[in-house]
Structure formats: C-alpha cells, structure tokens
Design a protein around this nucleic acid. Structure first.
Ligand SMILES: [Mn+2]
Ligand SMILES: [Mn+2]
Ligand SMILES: [Mn+2]
Ligand SMILES: [Mn+2]
Lengths: 217, 217
DNA sequence: AATATATTTTAGACTAGACTAAAAATATAT
DNA sequence: ATATATTTTTAGTCTAGTCTAAAATATATT
C-alpha cells in the first residue's frame, strides 16, 4: 500500500529528476512539496525501505522501476482527470490543477481504464503535457520554445511549461490558448521581449512569458 | 476545514440517527465505521467542539444544522459519483460503492455542480437511494417493502436497502435489477420465503432477500 | 589546506487518528 | 434494592507525518 503522501513524494522526485533517473536533492523535494528538508529525509528513507526509491545519505534520491511506475500512474490519473474536467465539466485550464491533485489519488484500476476510454484515450492534458499509458510510457509532442524560433516563422501553441494559476489567467486574459497559430514578428534585444501575431492581433510578450510557450512547427 | 475522517463520522451519525436528529450511541457508530468505541468518543468530542454535533456524555450524539448539511453534501457526492460510474464508465451497481467512498471526499463546489448537471441532475443513485440537493434536501421515492404486498399484486423494483457486494451479486446472478416489474405470487409461512414472478420467470426468494427489496406500486 | 557557508541528517517534539485496558456510569435482572 | 452485565469514558500508548533546532557532512572561498 502506498499512501497519499508517499505518492506525492514519488511524483515530486519523478518530476524533478527526469522521471526519477537523475539524483534529486533533499532541498529540491522539500521546496516542490512545500515541506521541510527534515521531513523529506524521513520520507525518502521510507520510500527506500519499500523499494520505491534509491537513497544514499547526502547524495540525493532516484526512483526504482517500481517507484517510477507508481509515479507515472499517478501523473496519468492527474492528467486524465484534468482532461475530464475541461472536456466534460466545463472547467477552464486554470481551474483544474487543484482538483486533479485530489483526484489523482483515487485508487481503482477500473476507474482509470474506463475514464481513459470514456475520454477517447487522450494523449495530452489541457496544458499540453503528455499522458502516460498504463505502463507509464509516453511520447511528448515535438515542440520548441518560442524563443528558439526565427523571425517570420510560425507554429501552433501545443504546450505551456507553467500551469500556475497566475500564468494561465494571463494567457486567458490575452486570448492565448492551446492550438492557436502564432507567428514570431520581432525580437527585442533590450528586454528580450517578443512581438507575436495571432489570428486576432499583434502583441508583445515578455521574455518571462515566452520561456513558457512551446510551439509545434 | 473538515477532515476526511470527520466527514465519515458525520455520515455515519446521519445514517444511523434519521439524518442525525435522533441520538446515536457510541457503539453503533463504532460498528458502522469499523472502529472502536473509544475512538468514537474522541472524535465526537472534536465534532462537538467544531459545532458539527451535539454531544452529552453517556447520552449519544446528534448533528447540528451545520453537521447535517455537511453530511448530506458528502452523501450527495457519493451518490452522484455512483451514478457517474454506472452511467458513464460501465461500472455495475455492485462495483461502485468502494470507489464512491473515496470520491465523496473530493473538495470542489464547482465539481459537484458540474457533475450534477453533466449527469442530468439525477434524483436517485444506482441502488434507488435519493440524491440530496445542494441544500441537503431530498424526497425518497414512495416505495413499499415487497413483504407488505398482497398476493397477486405487482410493482416495480425501485430501491434495494442493502448495497453490500454479496447482496448485489446475488441479484445480478438472479437477473434482478432496478426497474424490473415484479409480481408477488405466493408467501410461504414455513420459512417466510416468497415466490415472485419477473418478465423472465418465476423464482423463490428468501425472507432475508425480500426484506431488502422495495417496490413502487 | 584551512575556514566559512550551505546542505543534509539526527534528535526530539507535536498533532490527528487509532488502539487496549481499566475505570466509571448506566441498564438489566434478580 | 442490590448485584450483574453492558456501555461509555478515560488514561495511556502507538503510528504517520510533520516541524524546529542542533549536529554532521559537503561545498565554496580564500
Ligand atoms: Mn496539473
Ligand atoms: Mn496539466
Ligand atoms: Mn454507496
Ligand atoms: Mn448507493
């Protein structure tokens, strides 16, 4: 049995360390999970005892195959529920995360399978993140950060690398959504901002915003 | 903030004491929740501190208005999720309860509202139990136990007063489902069993089974 | 290489929720 | 009315998960 808390730690390690393959520091986990380093040390020992993590004192944590699969399945549930909330229950993409944080811990194999089928086996969540399959595998959409794109080229917004409330609300306010065609008009060396053009209009976005937008060409 | 555990106790008191209006004994709660009397005493004190229950030592517990509403809303969620699982995700009525026990604790007003609308504002769950509205009110279907019915009369199965796995599996095996028309053919004084007739066939059901079947005439 | 700084671990304490065993109160039976 | 049985409460213990403060280790700087 894996507890809710353990699932959250596994997920954090998975996200911070390239699916748990690269050693993650105690502090990094603490920050991600909004707990303290000492709590992380305790939990990480438990995960190691349960063969879900590899832990060497002072040298960070990685996930075992078992731990990696559990983390991937929690993320699978999280993202499937996000799709459900947006597609079926009229949630906007900035409203889904907190509810999905709760729903991802519901235990029922049949529930995940049937939900997946009910949604038409989606491959990506409302923020463009890939949905792992039953074995924990997934293939991200090939996409490139908007800052890497040449002036004059255009692409389709397929991924936002920041799902914070404030960022998503900013995008809403400025009428930017997944699936939008965006053309890069100009790059401003002074503040590294970008002028872009959508079907609606031209607009300037800060470097901070641009960093989080990924397009498929 | 009401914890998951507190919600479960509120629900138990609600179910055992006519929506929490009649005093419920410590032991009754312990049995329902599969805990021990001493644990119940502790929790009931906490509920009273939070103004969710009225508690007088040695005299049982009732719910306050606040406690009653919370309990009703948890039950609302439980039953809405049961409908969702059956109607949308191909669960059978004997598979939904355990998952609904988890889903009923998800906190999001919008989620409940939208789920309700998505399901077409159902009034009853897959076992015939009424679904409370946002204010915690509901009207049960007028139904009568099959043992009260006169020989030769018939009705429609609208409620089963036992949602245990074994009972529901028994009904499945014997092709009895909500909505079925059932006629009472004979009553056997020896063991108080009943002969009934469905669209398929005639069959004998034990008194134990009959006790749990409610028909609308 | 020695010292200063940052990170991580340990030690010890706290809370929620559960339990057992014993004590206290209530209910039942003579 | 008293003795017995049952129920409920209290007292004390346990576990999971968290925290603060201090100690240990690792990293960076001179
Ligand atoms: Mn999310
Ligand atoms: Mn997402
Ligand atoms: Mn149920
Ligand atoms: Mn039900």
């Amino acid at each position: 049995m894996v507890t809710l808390s353990e699932e959250n730690y596994l997920k954090a390690i998975y996200h911070l360390g390239k699916q748990g393959s690269v050693a993650v520091s105690t502090n990094a986990i603490a920050e991600k999970i909004k707990s303290k380093a000492s709590s992380v040390t305790d939990m990480v020992k438990k995960l190691a005892d349960k063969n879900l993590a590899n832990y060497v004192k002072y040298q960070g944590v990685t996930l075992t195959e078992k731990g990696r699969l559990i983390a991937a399945l929690v993320i699978r549930k999280h993202r499937l529920w996000e799709v459900f909330l947006v597609e079926k229950l009229n949630f906007t993409w900035d409203e889904v995360h907190d509810v999905a944080e709760q729903l991802e811990h519901i235990k029922s194999l049949k529930l995940v399978d049937e939900l997946d089928a009910f949604l038409g086996c989606p491959t990506h969540d409302p923020h463009g993140d890939p949905i792992p399959d039953k074995d924990g595998n997934y293939s991200p959409i090939k996409s490139v950060n908007i800052l890497e794109i040449k002036k004059g080229e255009q692409g389709v917004l397929v991924l936002v690398k920041n799902s914070s409330d404030s960022f998503l609300k900013y995008l809403n306010k400025n009428n930017l959504a997944l699936g939008d065609a965006i053309k890069v008009i100009d790059f401003e060396p002074f503040d590294k901002s970008l002028t872009i053009e959508t079907s609606d209009r031209k607009m300037i976005i800060s470097n901070e915003v641009a960093k989080n937008l990924y397009l498929s060409l």
